[in-house]
Design a protein around this nucleic acid. Structure first.
Length: 552
DNA sequence: GATGCTAGCGCC
DNA sequence: AAAGGGCGCTAGCATC
């Protein structure tokens, strides 16, 4: 396949390099150039999809394939099968340092320093060589798949931000007004929030109390005879006092007001679309993170405002028990794969005679993946290890490796950050004291234990949305992205597709076919089912409800 | 006035 | 006796 690498040159120009030669063009010509070449199906190679792709989308140009060098570089640098030395060379220290471009720093090609003018073709050659020489049977092919999926994910992320989630501001406003009262002036509390404050003050006999201040609130609660050391809702719920009900209501309303209130609408909804910003591979495990809009917590409370356009609908799909299924596939555990047949893996474990109840199955599996060693969950792990030795053994090995300070990897070859790298630790923690050293190793062991499953789950999900993206494109007519069925939301194991109503059933079928494709790509040796819950709904809030299910 | 941290909440 | 992974966002509070 032809690879065309694009690099920015000083003076609003672009260098395009491919096997047959190179040419330069004006930045303004880029969309028409890319659109013209796209027919040959090249893989576009660029430093950062989040910088190159949005202007193309804005010009109505969609690309089929790309290779994101920034994501590739970071991935390969940590991949245990890759020799780091192969990635070193001209400008490579710049690639090491290249961070994601963020919405707050959007200026495509703004500055004129070296980092702005990295030669994509040089880095591309190094990455290709590093993958080709990966050590171990099948490693190069797995890394190729991972890089392709990672880059496809970056395309999806840019397209979703571009298209946005259809958002009915009028419905959102209604919702806020019903719960909080009319929009208050800046700095003031909405009426119903203020009313809750008054009730709390009254019930605690604390007329001047500012309930937003933890210390003040704690003092007031103690003065009322409530022995609490924190002000969490779960703590308060256990108490019996007239102040508790208004206080919990106040917390709920206050959270809605501050996180998804009018200010949120002003900032993140425009032109009837909610456009969060996604950061592919933003977390160490390869899961996406987000740096604006709060895409990772799309609160149930405001989902009613996500409503498809007239004549359009949403197809919402999530995978049932993704990570346990991934664990079955990557460990080659035939017993667990057998239990995973059908819609409910936990029930499958019960039917298999492995556990007495669905809840026990869930406790045991989650405990194994998160590192629970005690309580009910810990006890279930012990019993299930005998029943599913390969699956439970795999996470156990990953935990041991972590406790020994070793790096672990996902199925496709993403490496975990090392114990010395900043993964989630207090950088000031000087571990002289052997106790904290042990705690640190245990914590790292829990991280590596979870890393292998969560990371491979993220790989499955990337393959899923990458394949789905292509299927959706083929379903549509001849128009631009937003005139065809297209992804508008993705979160770990769930997708939302915005589609013309008459294509909804085809989209639902595509989502399931893409899931099967992803499973086959990752776990060719051991077939594992990845059943989906699929809903065809006008509003996101209706997804998953009885009657919304599209197909079995 | 900017910055960094925590508590608490939300999502998977 | 208790012991669970990954994220983001806001407000308050401390610090410089």
């Amino acid at each position: 396949m032809t690879r065309v690498s694009l690099s920015r040159l000083p003076g609003e120009r672009v260098l395009a390099v491919e096997d047959g030669g190179e040419r330069t063009l004006a930045l303004a010509e880029l969309p028409s150039y890319v659109a013209g070449r796209e027919g040959d199906g090249p893989r576009w190679v660029w430093d950062d999809t989040a910088r190159w792709y949005p202007p193309l989308l804005a010009a109505g140009v969609r690309v089929a394939r790309c290779h994101d060098l920034r994501l590739g570089h970071h991935l390969l640098r940590r991949a245990p099968a890759v020799e780091a030395r192969l990635l070193a060379g001209e400008q490579s220290e710049h690639w090491d340092r290249l961070g994601p471009s963020t919405p707050s720093d959007p200026a495509l090609f703004a500055a004129d320093d070296t980092a702005e003018h990295l030669r994509a073709n040089l880095e591309d050659a190094r990455q290709l060589a590093a993958v080709a020489r990966a050590s171990g049977p099948g490693e190069a092919a797995r890394l190729e798949l991972l890089l392709a999926a990672e880059s496809a994910g970056a395309l999806v992320a840019a397209e979703m931000t571009y298209a946005g989630v259809p958002w009915r501001v009028d419905i959102h406003h209604h919702l806020l007004t019903d719960l909080l009262g009319p929009r208050p002036p800046r700095g003031a509390r909405p009426a119903l929030l203020q009313a809750a404050v008054a009730e709390v003050r009254e019930a605690l006999d604390a007329p001047g109390l500012n309930p937003d201040s933890r210390p003040e609130l704690l003092t007031a609660l103690r003065r009322a005879g409530l022995e609490v050391t924190d002000t969490r809702a779960s703590t308060l719920r256990a108490l019996d006092h007239p102040a508790i009900e208004p206080l919990l209501r106040l917390k709920r309303l206050s959270h809605l007001f501050s996180t998804n209130g009018w200010a949120w609408i002003d900032q993140w909804v425009s032109g009837g679309r909610f456009r969060p910003s996604y950061q592919p591979a933003g977390s160490a495990t390869g899961r996406w993170s987000s740096n604006g809009g709060g895409a990772l917590s799309f609160p149930v409370q405001v989902r009613p405002a996500a409503v498809a356009d007239d004549g359009w609908t949403f197809v919402v799909a999530d995978v049932a028990q993704l990570e346990p299924r991934v664990l079955a596939g990557m460990s080659g555990d035939r017993a667990l794969a057998r239990s995973a047949r059908g819609a409910d893996l936990y029930q499958g474990m019960v039917d298999d005679g492995a556990v007495a109840s669905r809840n026990d199955a869930k406790l045991g599996l989650l405990g194994a993946m998160y590192g629970a060693t005690s309580g009910e969950s810990g006890r279930m792990v012990a019993g299930l290890t005998r029943r599913y030795p390969a699956a439970f053994g795999l996470v156990e090995e990953a935990a041991k490796a972590g406790e020994h300070g070793e790096v672990v990897r996902t199925l496709l070859g993403r490496g975990s950050p090392g114990l010395g790298d900043p993964w989630d630790l207090d950088p000031d923690a000087t571990q002289v004291d052997p106790d904290s050293e042990l705690r640190l190793r245990r914590a790292y062991g829990r991280f590596t234990r979870n890393f292998v499953v969560q990371g491979t789950g993220a790989e499955w999900a990337l393959c899923w949305i990458a394949d789905l993206r292509n299927r959706l494109w083929r379903l549509g007519g001849a128009g631009p992205l937003e005139s065809r069925p297209h992804l508008v939301f993705f979160l770990h194991d769930e997708v939302v597709v915005h589609t013309p109503v008459d294509l909804a059933e085809d989209v639902a079928a595509s989502v399931a076919e893409a899931a099967a494709t992803a499973g086959a790509l990752l776990f060719r040796d051991l077939p594992v089912d990845f059943p989906l819950n699929v809903s065809i709904v006008r509003s996101y809030a209706d997804a998953g409800k009885p009657g919304a299910t599209a197909e079995g």
